[in-house]
Design a binder for these strands. Structure first.
Lengths: 100, 100
DNA sequence: AATCCGATATCGGCTTCCGATACTACCGGC
DNA sequence: GCCGGTAGTATCGGAAGCCGATATCGGATT
């Protein structure tokens, strides 16, 4: 059984897409940097889903002669991020002992 | 797409099973109290999985003439709880702004 | 012994996961 | 201007998980 990886990935994506443009490969690295190994078979469908749900918008862009699909959070994406953060904070309050 | 409900449920279960005996119906209420609506079709398989993974042990017990299956966390369950808490804390540190 | 009730278990259809593989577009070398 | 390399994205297919609905179970009540 996997822990809350799914939610963590979603949160990270929204978190970063809310303040800068992201793209799949970069997101993969960023997540790996935080210890989350995500396979392309999970990441790309997740991005597509977030876009289909209206939380992200994407645009094809060419950078250094490479084609990328860059994403940014929509207004709804920002709202969803805020909600998720609140849920996370509450969860932390509930099951985390005292605290830093 | 669902947020980190799955992980939250797991965490809550381990959290409570680590300090007292729990049973399915009670856990359902407790989760509902915190805003998590979980269906029996999710909860019971989850409990079974946690037990199959050696994180919980169960025992049939009769309380007030009602049969319950009560669960407690094993040693491995406590360890898993600690890990999950650490992961949660790190996630919170990463994506939560400053602090409450 | 029939019924009720709290509690647990299972079923079926759907969504999601994720490793592997394929595709696309651009590059440099020659 | 073809060829292999490479970065990045997409898809496929089997397995796992989700969850509403329904079934089952065991003790209590009458």
């Amino acid at each position: 059984m996997r822990e809350f990886l799914r939610g963590a990935v979603r949160l990270h994506i929204l978190h970063h897409a809310a303040e800068q443009e992201i793209h799949g490969a970069w997101m993969t690295e960023e997540l790996a940097r935080h210890g989350y190994a995500i396979s392309p078979g999970t990441l790309y469908p997740t991005l597509h889903r977030l876009e289909a749900d209206g939380l992200l918008v994407s645009e094809q862009r060419t950078v250094d002669g490479r084609v990328r699909r860059v994403y940014r959070a929509t207004e709804a994406g920002h709202a969803a991020l805020a909600e998720d953060r609140a849920a996370l904070a509450e969860l932390a309050r509930e099951v985390l002992p005292k605290q830093s």
